[in-house]
């Protein structure tokens, strides 16, 4: 048995932070049921589970054509009224038969995919981590992508984002693993793909850990992209400050690793903090941003002093990437 899943993370398409009632409406609309929400430590909303039927080839590095039938579970999460996640996952189990059974059989086991024939777990786990899967293989990315689109197109959202950012995809697998496999292995893949291999007894509450990790990985990726683009050391201080502003306004307060992770997975966060040192990287990015803002404040102050003493301050080039992005 193994569980495989994918978490997509991106900015919610709304200029302002979405309040709790709106989060309920938005998520309620896509699932047709009441979402669960909580306010601490951060506003958080999660939609009830929905299921998508699948009957398709399963991934594998060996190229063996193994099929499976069943359903994929998916839900959407909104964190801080700002970040949207779509999480799709399935528990793959050895099938009761080597052919397809009537749908009622699979509907009685929501979230399970049954393998037709003899499953090869290691092959399947590795196949699912590959950057390019066969086009006809189980595609959790497509299922998550559709859920993401359904939320983003909600009439309760204004369709705009306060800054541009890239979605990330965290693909993960949890199974007993080969002997000696580490409890956790996170790899940054091509572009926005991350892969996470977890070793342990398969249990679906691991999704909370994967979503929390995906959220923090996205925050780190996004803040680093903002810093990279601010041209620290090259551009004028005011310009740099304007480019860094979205990080301060919208991202910094969202960093809270482990806040929603069940106790049984807290040790995995500890592992990540040790290596690659998530919070260390975050802290260094935050310090970098604060320093730049301080430099800008100083230069504004000294410009003010200069003006008072009769000098003109330097002309200020308006920031290229400011708050409103699309305006012509």
């Amino acid at each position: 048995m193994l569980i495989m899943g994918e978490v997509q993370t991106g900015l919610l398409r709304n200029l302002g932070e979405l309040g709790e009632p709106k989060c309920r409406e938005v998520l309620g609309l896509v699932s047709g049921e009441e979402p669960r929400t909580s306010m601490r430590p951060l506003p958080y909303a999660i939609s009830p589970e929905q299921f998508t039927g699948v009957d398709c080839r399963l991934p594998g590095v060996s190229g063996a054509r193994i099929r499976g039938t069943g359903t994929v579970a998916q839900h959407a999460v909104i964190v801080g009224g700002r970040v949207l996640q779509a999480s799709a996952y399935a528990t793959v189990v050895a099938g009761a038969a080597d052919h397809r059974l009537p749908w009622s059989h699979y509907l009685a086991r929501p979230g399970d995919i049954e393998v037709h024939g003899r499953p090869r777990w290691a092959d399947m786990a590795e196949g699912f981590m590959a950057a390019e899967m066969p086009m006809d293989a189980l595609n959790l990315s497509a299922i998550g992508g559709r859920l993401m689109a359904a939320v983003q197109e909600s009439p309760h959202l204004d369709g705009k984002t306060p800054f541009k950012s890239t979605r990330t995809h965290l693909r993960w697998v949890l199974w007993r693993g080969e002997a000696g496999a580490p409890p956790l292995l996170l790899t940054l893949g091509k572009g926005s793909l991350r892969t996470l291999r977890l070793t342990g007894e398969p249990a679906t509450d691991v999704t909370a850990f994967c979503e929390d990790l995906a959220l923090h990985d996205w925050l780190l990726t996004t803040i680093q992209a903002i810093i990279q683009r601010a041209l620290i050391g090259t551009a004028a201080p005011s310009q740099i400050a304007a480019r860094l502003a979205p990080a301060i306004d919208h991202l910094m307060h969202l960093w809270m690793p482990g806040a929603r992770v069940p106790d049984s997975y807290q040790h995995l966060w500890k592992e990540l903090e040790r290596r690659p040192g998530f919070s260390r990287q975050w802290a260094s990015s935050v310090t970098r941003i604060r320093d730049q803002i301080a430099v800008n404040t100083l230069s504004l102050l000294s410009a003010a002093v200069m003006t008072e003493s009769g000098h003109e301050p330097d002309g200020d080039i308006s920031p290229h990437r400011g708050a409103s992005q699309d305006d012509p």
């Binding site: 991106g10 398409r13 689109a149 983003q152 197109e153 984002t161 950012s165 979605r167 992005q325």
Partner: peptide, 12 residues
């Protein structure tokens, strides 16, 4: 329409 809306999240 869906594609353009989606790309707008990411691209100037």
């Amino acid at each position: 329409v869906r594609l353009f809306s989606r790309l707008r999240e990411e691209f100037d």
